[in-house]
């Protein structure tokens, strides 16, 4: 297990599960550490931000991203498809705001967004996002106009979602790197403007 969670009850549960798998000869401690190191070495919200910035600067890429998220991620060298999920990118517009949740557990495209924030896995977020998203967004500091349509995508299956935020109006003339630096993991989940 990676450091920092050693005191949590879930860490003890995960460790017991690991020990059972190791005892059964299915995996070794070293193999587990190597897999985790590989996952977290490349998984970062900078990957999702890069896709967003490309979509903001290249309308043809935006179209491909919305049509086939897996292929568009692979185009930039990100292995969104390597875990066998379907990547669906949902676009915010002047009238529609999208937000992601997994009410059943905590499904989330880790390769593109990095390790999920602890609040994303909390019972409070998972139960309230589908019930009162406007109130939840307000608590994140995101006050949407009353007439904005809110779509909440519950990742209950093999589909993983990424929000394509609206391009900031002040972004004219900014290059792709500068644009990518404006995008946060909350923006990619839909709990921030971008």
């Amino acid at each position: 297990m990676s450091g920092g969670h050693g005191e949590l009850p879930v860490a003890a549960r995960v460790r017991r599960l690991e020990e059972r798998l190791i005892a059964a000869g299915l995996v070794t401690d070293d193999e587990l550490d190597e897999v985790l190191a590989q996952v977290f070495a490349s998984a970062a919200p900078a990957n999702g931000a890069r896709m967003v910035a490309r979509a903001w600067t290249d309308p043809a890429y935006r179209d491909r991203l919305l049509a086939d998220g897996n292929a568009a991620a692979a185009e930039l060298g990100f292995g969104a498809g390597s875990h066998g999920y379907l990547l669906k990118v949902v676009e915010n517009t002047a009238s529609v705001h999208n937000m992601i949740v997994c009410t059943l557990c905590s499904c989330y495209p880790t390769a593109l967004l990095g390790p999920s924030p602890s609040w994303y896995k909390s019972f409070a977020y998972r139960s309230r996002a589908v019930r009162e998203p406007r109130g939840v967004l307000a608590e994140f500091g995101l006050e949407l106009p009353d007439d904005t349509e809110i779509r909440v995508w519950d990742a209950n299956s093999e589909t993983r979602y990424l929000v394509l935020p609206q391009r900031p109006e002040a972004a004219d003339g900014m290059d792709e790197n500068a644009l990518a630096s404006l995008v946060t993991s909350n923006g990619l989940i839909g709990t921030a403007v971008r």
Binding site: R131, E149, I150, R151, V152, W153, A155, E158
Partner: peptide
């Protein structure tokens, strides 16, 4: 439909 109130929508697979 889900909750009896609210104007948003929830998409499930």
């Amino acid at each position: 439909e889900l909750w009896g109130s609210g104007s948003h929508s929830v998409i499930l697979d």
